[in-house]
Amino acid sequence: MKCEHIRELLSAYVDNMTDAKENRIIAAHLAECEACRHEYDNLQLMCTILGNMGQPELPERFTEEFHKRLLEEKTRLFSAKEFRRPRKSGWVAAGLAAIALTIGIYVSSIIPIGAWIANFDEKPAEKERNNIAIEDIIRSIKGWGTDNNEVVNEVKIADSQKKSPTKIDDEITSNENNAGEKVVDEEPLPVVPKYIEDYATKIKVKDMEEATDQIVQIAAANNLEYKALPYASNAQALSANKSKEVNIKVDKNKSQSLIKQLNNIGQAASPVQNKLEITNEYAQVEEQIYITKKLINKLEGKNELSANEATDLVELKKHLEESYTKKIELDKEVNTVIVRVILEEDVSH
């Protein structure tokens, strides 16, 4: 094996992350090659130095200050940021659930919290690849860091809404034809602020189960997806009496009429609107699409591709499709409103 290949493996070799065969080859090579041995020694020395850098001490005031901020966070009224979008699979089709209710099964109450948590944010298994990974290709150009915003959960988009690879190719071609390389120098489009909105509406009811039943029936009548939580996730409700929460997904333009219907269930406080700005996240996805397209253009413009480049091209196309999917998801989120109904038992009765 050439020095170049050996050196690529040295980092993993230092960590015992090479396999037995590689170990034999590397050891044999290091015994003979002084330059590689020097590099290996320095690598090891550097790792030792880094490991001995010591840890700074957290100032003592931290615990008290954090305690205060945590309480503020908890009592913050109807915070938009607390709102989380559940996976599509976590939502119960209203019709089905209504049937379940009529035979006496309260869907969410039988789901243990642990299982419910596990339902969130399943990470798609990423294909392992030993040379340059997609994010490296892109970051090497843009210098982006890791962007794993765990707040945004993965939601599968119906196949019909996914852009097919053909569609993507079409767009790339048209992009190339219309603007070609000059695209890079163009002024970025003006940023339009994007928001995810939700309404929190608190209703005092006499009978929690009956009220939940009524809400589910309203959701069913309007053919809306809903999710019932076994407890109220809202910070304000935590201090209150017995409380529960039902979240309903509705088109932005139909949210007001839904809230009106819901207000008949009990003694309703006026709903609080929350906005979570996702302009940056949206812009990042658009930027990813833009750059990925650029890179694909570059590679496709070549007469001949090396094996690595061909793999890169496949990865890039996959990444482009994923970015489109994410954009569609965000668009969908922007156009949908979640109405969070917080039910609170009215103890005065």
């Binding site: 050196r7 690529e8 493996l9 040295l10 980092s11 993993a12 992350m17 590099e39 320095n42 690598l43 020395l45 550097m46 790792c47 990470k123 990423e126 294909k127 392992e128 690849r129 030993n130 040379n131 340059i132 990974a133 994010e135 490296d136 890791t146 794993n148």
Partner: peptide, 28 residues
Amino acid sequence: NCSLGTVKSRLSRARNTLRKKLEDRELL
């Protein structure tokens, strides 16, 4: 949120960059 392969290759490149910086400054 990446694969083991990505961790390996990225770490290898990062260490090389840092090692060269240290060598350039005669700290190694």
